[in-house]
């Protein structure tokens, strides 16, 4: 669905994207993650035809985003971080407005609006002004507006930032429905537990794609063992072992310590170090690395 070849985007004083090559398959949910300034938003903007590349090529369903921008626009729905709903228009008025804007066919407009209202669970709120909706509802309305012209590719830039956990789950529930309808989704997010929900994840750093794979494959790639142990006091226990050989990362979480070890055998050294200081850990277990572990390890690697 998306073919990116050696994409580079330079601004006056910075390189936002450096030689990015990436394919996103039809029907995928693809997550772009990375620290602030990694180039995620710029990448979405280029795909969305909102910004021209400095070098390289991007095609959506075979159409070049520069030369065939008008065709590409009909294929994509782009929800930027600050999606501009009209605060003083009602939910229905907003949807009608975006239907005009995106050129949704008149004949099916009414059924499409109804379908989207039901989809976004906003049917009871058609007459409410957008500014009086909760944050989560505004995001759902923005998503509905983005889907008005039935795009085949949905580009979402941090759609759940600042949204509470309940609304976030609901938003993902809607995305799952969109996915089941066959729409390709590219999403950026600072929440790494959200990236776990994607079929594949690309990790960007300073404009480059430094890893790209399924969440499980990324976990396997760091080749590390993560252990959690219940210890008290956790902060002291962490400090005792954080500089020990083979400890890649150590963090205290309430009453437990989480350690990322380069090899499973290091566990014995850790236990010995704690016992030497009279700390007896309880409930020690090997847990599955989180994408956050992967992210931190890959970025901290010199």
């Amino acid at each position: 669905m998306i073919a990116i070849r050696s994409l580079t985007k330079r601004f006056a004083d910075a390189v936002a994207i450096a030689d990015l090559t990436l394919d996103v398959g039809e029907g995928e949910i693809f997550g772009l993650i990375g620290p602030d300034g990694a180039g995620k938003t710029t990448t979405l903007r280029v795909i969305a035809t909102a910004m021209a590349p400095t070098a390289g090529r991007v095609a959506v369903a075979g159409h070049d985003v520069v030369r065939e921008a008008e065709t590409v626009k009909t294929l994509i729905g782009y929800m930027p971080q600050r999606f501009a709903l009209y605060p003083d228009l009602t939910v229905l008025e907003n949807l009608n407005f975006f239907a005009d804007l995106f050129g949704a066919p008149r004949a099916e407009r009414r059924t499409q609006i109804e379908r989207l209202l039901t989809f976004a669970r906003l049917s009871d709120f058609g007459a409410r002004r957008a500014q009086n909706l909760s944050g989560g509802m505004q995001k759902k309305l923005a998503l509905a507006a983005t889907l008005m012209h039935r795009p085949r590719l949905l580009l979402l830039d941090e759609p759940t930032t600042g949204v509470d956990p309940v609304s976030r789950r609901e938003f993902w529930d809607l995305l799952t429905q969109v996915h089941l309808d066959g729409v390709t989704i590219v999403i950026t997010t600072p929440y790494l537990d959200e990236a776990e929900r994607c079929n594949r994840v690309g990790l960007m750093h300073r404009g480059r794609l430094i890893a790209c794979d399924t969440p499980n494959a990324l976990r396997a790639r760091i080749g590390a063992t993560v252990i959690e142990a219940q210890v008290s006091p956790a902060v002291a226990a962490r400090r005792l072992v954080e500089h020990q050989t083979g400890v890649l990362s150590a963090s205290a979480h309430g009453d437990s310590v989480r350690l990322i070890l380069d090899r499973a055998e290091r566990q014995a050294d850790i236990m010995a170090a704690w016992q030497a200081h009279g700390i007896t850990p309880g409930n020690v277990r090997i847990v599955r690395p989180r994408l956050e572990d992967v992210f931190v390890l890959m970025l901290e690697k010199p």
Binding site: G34, P35, D36, T161, G162, P190, L192, S251, E292, F295, V296, L299, E300
Partner: peptide
Amino acid sequence: TAGVDPISRRALW
């Protein structure tokens, strides 16, 4: 840490 990336969040913690 609303809107702060994971590395910076870790530093804050």
